[in-house]
Design a protein around this nucleic acid. Structure first.
Lengths: 208, 208
DNA sequence: GTCTATAAGACGATAGAC
DNA sequence: GTCTATCGTCTTATAGAC
């Protein structure tokens, strides 16, 4: 007990989470077995139960920490005096975070239906908190007259879907750098709310 | 043989496809068993193998026919003399089709990773054909000067993601009718390519 | 065309040795 | 903390009666 306390155990737990995340993202939660996860970690299936009481708890833990990290990172970023700046910052943050953590994003989005009712409700609350953040920006911009928006709730979901979709096609080492993609998406988002993006980031035209 | 030829068999096959689609959409392919599918159809699991040699072939069949129906319906719709009209028609078609067939859309999108390599390649080809359709419209509008687009491939994927996302939040009987949602999304898509939507569909402002 | 029965094995999770 | 061994159940798919 004294020999291993706080050393090997914590490392193994992290490793399990890391390997489970990759496996879930690639094959889906339901298609991945505890034996597979253990295999990737170099241990036997039974040892997993020292850290997680059920397979479900691994999924829940992954999704919860992903959403919490996302919200924490978002909070740190945000302090802007006008809606346009706030929207630009949000869009850039979203794209960067999603390109940076594609596996976490994928699992948090695709595996909702595999959560039991209670964990499901908890994760949905965190998702809604994130959505509310963008909705507030859009409402403020609509109220101030900066944005032209037909319907704020629909536009909120449309923008999030548009940006999250970056993970369906982006692969490292492609035609465009992360910075270029960020700029393109920020411009797309600004267009959606009726702004003229080229006036705000004139350098983009030269890049593409 | 003579008694049942062309009657009960075909009905059962259709029923299997219908129930499998619903189950796959709700719980995911990997989480649904052949027994569950059979149960929903009122038959025993063994009887499924009269119609489908493997579970995989049910999934493949569903995804293939969904993509083929989508492409056929798209072809019928399209004959326009300018890029703006073509884009409007495409956006309206996409939203309507996706609201109309949410289960097919969901499965075709979410279960790609559960296809074996050969079926996967086939379905991806059909997807790309659909994406190419929109990409051509955007290219033409960019060339003619009707659209303002930074990057056509990225904008293609962004628009498709934005529109497909309608299935993540839309439920029948909500605040907005299908027609209202169509209009909002058409306007969003037009905004993305730099057009002023309210001039094209002035009635929307009264509706919302 | 559907049934029952079953093969052959994988599944999540647990028990107890070390 | 990890192992081996195992429980009980579920899985896809097949065989043969009717």
């Amino acid at each position: 007990m004294a020999r291993t306390a706080g050393s090997i155990g914590k490392e193994t737990e992290k490793r399990v989470l890391k390997e489970a995340l990759t496996l879930f993202a690639h094959h889906g939660y339901a298609a991945v077995s505890m034996r597979q996860i253990a295999g990737k970690c170099g241990i036997q299936a039974g040892a997993l139960y020292n850290y997680f009481p059920t397979k479900q708890s691994i999924l829940h833990g992954l999704m919860k920490s992903h959403m919490q990290n996302l919200l924490t990172a978002l909070d740190v970023e945000q302090l802007h005096n006008n809606p346009t700046q706030a929207l630009e910052a949000f869009a850039q943050f979203h794209i960067r975070y999603h390109i940076d953590k594609p596996e976490g994003v994928f699992v948090a989005y695709m595996e909702l239906r595999n959560l039991e009712p209670e964990p499901y409700a908890e994760i949905m609350k965190l998702r809604q908190k994130y959505e509310r953040f963008l909705r507030r920006i859009l409402r403020e911009g609509q109220a101030s007259g900066d944005f032209e928006i037909d319907d704020v709730p629909v536009t909120t979901m449309a923008i999030i879907s548009m940006m999250t979709g970056v993970n369906t096609w982006f692969r490292d080492g492609g035609r465009l750098s992360v910075e270029e993609i960020e700029k393109i998406y920020v411009n797309l988002v600004l267009s959606v709310v009726g702004l003229e993006p080229e006036l705000l980031t004139p350098r983009l035209k030269e890049v593409t």
